[in-house]
Simulated assay, not measured.
Amino acid sequence: MGRGNNANGGDEYSLGLRAAWLHYAGGLTQAAVARKLRLTSVKTHRLIARAVADGAVKLSIDGDIIECLEMEAALSERYDLQVCEVAPDLAEPGLPLRALGIAGASYMARVIDQSGGGPIGLGHGRTLAAAVGELPQRAGDKTRFVSLLGGLTRNFAANPHDVMYRIAERTESPAHVMPVPFCANSVHDKSILLAQRGVREVFEMAQSAPIKLVGLGTVDTEAQLVRAGMIDQSELAGIVAAGAVGEVLGHFFDADGQQVATPLDGRTLTISLLENTGDDELVAIAGGVDKAASIAAVLESRKLTGLIIDEATSRRILGRPAA
């Protein structure tokens, strides 16, 4: 859809349309647009000027991305999001990992540029791994990354969708892993693990990270928590019985966005979900029409401040017909 979406021209074009849309149609000042898109004022001005010079700004904003921009505005209004980007459809079968990876990498690069040394918290999952995979190689800087939850399986094997080692390689920056399982055998075992000095320090860094990038999970038979070996089928059955529909960082929500008690409570090694104060950012990279109900459940919780999502899933959540 549109003029492509690569790391250079296509990404600049999409950013220019978003900036122009927010400025001319959304009524935001260029300074407000820069803050929303995590860009410098100079780059924002240049992108808007380029959109005008290219003829995209008339009585409306031209371009195939227009429907995505409209859905971004609708999702932001419905779920109180500070950041929302809808990745244009690339006609991928199944989970749109390339579209989400490209959009997620673009946003992640802007976050890194403005992090001021971090730390940036990272969850795990296929979509987040796809975003890290699309991130261009970068020279090392002051950015630090930290895992937001235990990165090992129940059998102390590596999580196949953990992103910490890959992000360290891509950015040449420190990446602090949480070297414990996602779920301890008991509440007592969890307390013992967290009492270890190195683990406790990483956990505290994760909790305090002002920017947190995460994936969202389902509770169906394809749930990544089970497929990756983080929990077992009997635990998943208890979660489903509790009424859970969607998951973020090991916290589960029903269709109305209410957090539900599950058999994992007190045993998961993950950060707590703080109330959004405007200072902390919790941005999800998530998609796939089969996950629409799960994503909507987490959105209803109002815990997220931002969302990177694909076009088809956005349409499903908003109840719009397919393009």
Rank of each mutant, 00 (worst) to 15 (best):
L213R: 03
A241H: 11
V219L: 08
V240T: 15
A242V: 09
A237P: 08
G229R: 05
S208Y: 00
K190H: 06
A195G: 15
N185F: 08
A223C: 15
A241C: 06
E222L: 10
A209G: 01
I239A: 12
L193A: 12
E204F: 02
A242C: 12
L216W: 01
G238H: 09
S208F: 01
I211C: 08
R227C: 04
K212N: 07
V214M: 06
H188E: 14
D189R: 09
A223V: 12
D232V: 14
Q196N: 13
L216D: 01
V226R: 01
Q233L: 14
I231V: 13
F203H: 11
A237C: 11
V180G: 03
F182W: 04
V240R: 15
L216G: 01
L213P: 00
C183P: 01
G215F: 01
V219I: 15
V226G: 08
G243Q: 10
R227S: 05
S186E: 10
L194I: 10
E204N: 13
L213W: 09
V202G: 00
S234E: 13
F203S: 02
C183R: 13
R200Q: 15
V199I: 15
G215D: 11
R227Y: 02
P210S: 10
L236T: 08
I192L: 14
L236D: 06
Q196F: 05
I239R: 13
G243L: 09
A241Y: 03
E201F: 00
I211R: 14
I239Q: 12
N185L: 04
Q207P: 00
D220P: 07
A184D: 00
P179N: 09
A237H: 12
L194P: 08
L225V: 10
V240K: 13
A184I: 08
R227N: 07
S186N: 06
H188L: 05
I239G: 10
T221Q: 12
R200F: 05
T221W: 09
L236R: 14
D189E: 14
V187F: 06
I211T: 14
